[in-house]
Computed example of a mutant assay.
Amino acid sequence: MEQISIPGLPFAASRIALGTWAIGGWMWGGPDDDNAIATIHRALDLGINLVDTAPVYGFGHSEEIVGRALEGRRDDVLIATKVGLDWSSGRPRRNSTPERLRQELEDSLRRLRTDVIDIYQIHWPDDATAFEVTAETLDEFRREGKIRAIGVSNFDVAQMERFRTRAPIATVQPPYNLFERGAEDAVLPYAKTHGIVALTYGALCRGLLSGKMTEDTTFEGDDLRKMDPKFKQSRRGQYLAAVAELDTLARDKFGKSVLALAVRWILDQGDTVALWGARRPAQLDAVPEIMGWHVDAETMAEIDAILAKTVTDPVGPEFMAPPRTKVA
């Protein structure tokens, strides 16, 4: 397993991290705790030592599952969680007031069964609270020894610039995969320039890049893919056509699956970590396929050509963003 150093952490992080949104159940068809714990254990056995979660994933449930799964193994694992979403009104809304952040910190420590969080990330920028105030609050937590490193998620460059005037940023978490590449415009170059590690989420684009989706795949309950414009029939065929061609490319050139190509492509973009979401152990079986090879420049160009040809009506991940708050 490839590893990367992140400022403030006691040891290097694996460049594949386990994402646990689906484990929380909310917007993924409900929880399955036994499979969730087995999935976390499988990830650790495969050399993954960074687990990313958030309070809003199942409204606390994902963090609770992570805490249970890591009992007896906590010292060997880095935990990244998030803060700044309030769901008390029935739907998540951005709230980064110091009082809210303090309450969330204590709640997360309790649910995760730990006395320190390795990477603490603002989940979504909250315009109603000055970014400088938010940064000062998280830096206070760091100086108290309750968190080790500060991260931001879904921030743009201007927001990071303001935040960094009051506290260091160790990581930034943007959506990033073969189909969602907006981070390349500014966020990833900024991170590279300033020594910030990118924990990129959505590596498999909600399963589109797993190679297992078809035109007939359906989603049950509150599964967010029922709302995702990529999965609507008007676009799904374009994305599946791209997946089919990418799979052929991966197998012909590397003897790999499209899933392996998608994750390896992220790792070959620089100082990146790919968040791999899973809720069943078998969904991690391909992890060993990612190591020991690289996507060369010629193949990168072939990938771009395939995407330009097949995805003629692209759409980003904006549908997932909670409503913005008004500037105070």
Score class of each variant (00 low, 15 high):
residue 102 R to N: 03
residue 104 E to W: 04
residue 155 F to N: 03
residue 97 T to N: 12
residue 76 D to V: 06
residue 106 E to K: 08
residue 198 A to P: 13
residue 119 I to V: 07
residue 170 A to F: 09
residue 96 S to N: 14
residue 83 V to T: 15
residue 167 A to K: 02
residue 188 L to G: 00
residue 105 L to S: 13
residue 144 E to C: 05
residue 157 V to H: 00
residue 121 Q to L: 09
residue 95 N to H: 09
residue 133 V to Q: 05
residue 88 S to K: 05
residue 117 I to P: 08
residue 97 T to H: 12
residue 177 N to M: 10
residue 87 W to G: 06
residue 174 P to D: 12
residue 139 D to V: 07
residue 84 G to Y: 02
residue 89 S to N: 01
residue 114 T to P: 00
residue 136 E to Y: 09
residue 177 N to I: 10
residue 129 T to Q: 11
residue 191 A to W: 14
residue 154 N to W: 05
residue 140 E to Y: 06
residue 157 V to D: 00
residue 149 A to R: 05
residue 74 R to H: 10
residue 190 Y to L: 11
residue 114 T to F: 01
residue 94 R to Y: 01
residue 116 V to W: 04
residue 107 D to I: 12
residue 102 R to C: 03
residue 140 E to D: 14
residue 147 I to Q: 13
residue 198 A to K: 09
residue 85 L to H: 07
residue 76 D to L: 11
residue 85 L to Y: 04
residue 199 L to G: 11
residue 86 D to H: 14
residue 179 F to E: 11
residue 78 L to D: 02
residue 80 A to V: 06
residue 90 G to Y: 05
residue 95 N to D: 14
residue 183 A to C: 06
residue 103 Q to D: 14
residue 113 R to M: 05
residue 89 S to A: 05
residue 199 L to P: 11
residue 77 V to F: 05
residue 130 A to S: 15
residue 155 F to W: 04
residue 165 T to P: 09
residue 174 P to M: 14
residue 162 R to W: 07
residue 94 R to A: 04
residue 149 A to I: 06
residue 101 L to S: 06
residue 83 V to P: 07
residue 194 H to Y: 13
residue 102 R to I: 02
residue 148 R to V: 02
residue 138 L to E: 02
residue 199 L to R: 08
residue 95 N to T: 07
residue 114 T to I: 01
residue 187 V to T: 13
residue 121 Q to R: 02
residue 95 N to P: 01
residue 161 E to L: 13
residue 192 K to T: 04
residue 111 R to L: 03
residue 75 D to I: 13
residue 105 L to G: 13
residue 188 L to Y: 00
